[in-house]
Design a protein around this nucleic acid. Structure first.
Length: 462
RNA sequence: GGCGGCAUAGCCAAGCGGUAAGGCCGAGGUCUGCAAAACCUCUAUGCGGCGGUUCAAAUCCGCCUGCCGCCUCCA
């Protein structure tokens, strides 16, 4: 295992990662609430945790990665009413959409992907434990967590309970709560027709914060090494998770808290409530999953990133350059270099320092440069295999791009035919016709390259 | 009101005490029938501003300015 340092939001400094049970490393990251198509903010978070987990594995850690799906929530219920569908169906539709997006972005499957509705009995059990030890109380059909009962409340945010109370200017606290910071563990239904689950307190549904605590307990007990999520979740979501879990288990919840920065669109934070969010599906109409990944990785994961068309084009061009250097490399027949060398050393050095992906990308470009300059074919292939290996570690899926073809035999055959025709035009010195054919192909983003000895190749440009 | 973050070339972005990585765009050149790709050359004496500490600061400290976020659903 490589020594890795990571910035821990809990302590506000970089720390050496020391899993409690090496070489295993348990990591839990907050997944989406599935009430709509996922947006590019989800893409950033997913790509962040994906490349971090990939690197942890590369560095020798046996990761067990869990990413939840929130499939019960007011927003899902509202959407269900809107569409006149059962909430569970709404959740499944958008969970499926999320998985499509993850596939398009080449985000690996987590080891576990629990859904809140699969853990209702666990949650009820969790709440009962909190009531029994005085951390929670019931008012009518609702159960609230008692924030003053947890003395460390506010540690993640970096404020005391009294300081947090002062900041409570923007919203009217629910008058029935004992303390303004108390939050719902269980929300009883308001109307007998409302959707809900049976519980000892009547029909209702779990509070959002509770599911992550419960599912972590169900899966890891008390051995969570890393908990990740967007930095907008620090307060109150993650603060509340800590309060619930540590009140319930009396043990430390997570050792390291990692948070990814937000996506901005035209300089403004993208948020569902702002209505300025771009779905992953929309973004992928204009660019490739690799380019979107490059765009994200080109900034450090903790920094905010501003999504612009210009930035996406720059990312696409950058990916194209790397991809170009891998042309003719075949990952199934060429050896993949996994021995250490100057490039992997630099790559590991950058990534081990709080997952510095922008520096890691610079290593890929250094390889790209050297591949393009290298005359010795044997060394060239060796360098390509290193580049390919590192690109995979960052989660790029370049192989479909550098191996020419459309995946559609008929279309490929037509393209080949046009190119042969162009070649004949060129032999007859009919350059006008030949160029016309090239222009036609270019209009479809098909790029032709003339190689020595009458050979040619083509590929699709994104 | 409380708390936090960020300001580096035309754009994006590393660096976090030792004299400015990388990418994109742009200019010129090589190659080519012309292209494309690639290669070569060029593109911040300076890192928001003003002070301070130091042999040395983009990097540390102080003040100021500007932008963003969290405290409400959010990745």
């Amino acid at each position: 295992m490589r020594q890795i340092t990571a910035y821990n939001s809990l302590t506000r400094k970089k720390e050496i990662l020391e899993p409690s049970n090496p070489p295993y490393l348990n990591i839990y990251t907050c997944g989406p609430t599935v009430y709509d198509h996922s947006h590019i903010g989800h893409a950033r978070a997913s790509i962040t945790w994906d490349f971090i987990v990939r690197f942890l594995r590369y560095a020798g850690y046996q990761t067990v990665w869990t990413r939840n799906i929130t499939d019960i929530d007011d927003k899902i219920i509202n959407k269900a009413r809107e569409l006149n569908l059962h909430p569970d169906k709404v959740a499944r539709i958008y969970a499926h959409s999320f998985h499509e997006d993850m596939h398009a972005l080449n985000v690996d499957w987590p080891d576990f992907e629990p859904a809140a509705t699969q853990h209702i009995p666990d949650m009820i059990n969790f709440i009962q434990g909190l009531i029994q030890n005085g951390s929670a109380y019931q008012i009518k059909n609702d159960i609230y967590f008692s924030v003053p009962s947890f003395k460390n409340y506010g540690r993640l945010k970096g404020q005391s309970i009294s300081e947090l109370e002062k900041g409570f200017g923007r919203i009217e606290p629910n008058p029935q709560k004992k303390h303004s910071l108390d939050f719902a563990l269980w929300k009883g239904i308001k109307d007998s027709n409302d959707y809900g689950f049976e519980s000892p307190w009547g029909k209702g549904r779990p509070g959002w914060h509770l599911e992550c605590s419960t599912m972590n307990y169900a899966l890891y007990r008390t051995n969570l090494d890393i908990h990740g999520g967007g930095d907008d979740l620090i307060f109150p979501h993650h603060e509340n998770e800590i309060a619930q879990s540590e009140s319930f288990t009396k043990l430390k919840f997570a050792k390291y808290w990692l948070h990814n920065g937000m996506i901005m669109v035209n300089g403004k934070k993208m948020a569902k409530s702002e209505g300025n969010f771009i779905t992953i599906k929309d973004a992928l109409k204009n660019t490739s999953g690799n380019a979107l990944r490059f765009f994200m990785l080109n900034s450090h994961y903790r920094m905010p990133v501003n999504y612009t068309d210009e930035g996406i084009i720059a990312a696409q061009n950058g990916v194209n350059r790397i991809t170009e250097a891998l042309s003719d490399f075949n990952s199934s027949t060429n050896d993949i270099a996994d021995t250490e060398n100057e490039y992997t050393g630099e790559f590991i050095g950058s990534m081990s320092d709080d997952f510095n992906s922008p520096q890691a990308l610079a290593v890929l470009f250094k390889l790209t440069d050297n591949i393009n300059k290298e005359a010795n074919q044997k060394i060239k292939i060796k360098l390509k295999s290193i580049l390919y290996n590192l690109s995979c570690t960052l989660g790029f899926n370049l192989s479909s791009s550098f191996q020419a073809g459309t995946g559609d035999k008929l279309i490929s055959k037509i393209i080949d035919g046009l190119i042969i025709w162009r070649k004949e035009c060129k032999l007859k010195k009919d350059f006008a016709s030949g160029d016309k054919i090239r222009d036609i192909l270019n209009d479809s983003n098909i790029e032709i390259k003339d190689l020595p000895d009458d050979r040619y190749k083509w590929q699709i440009r994104y």
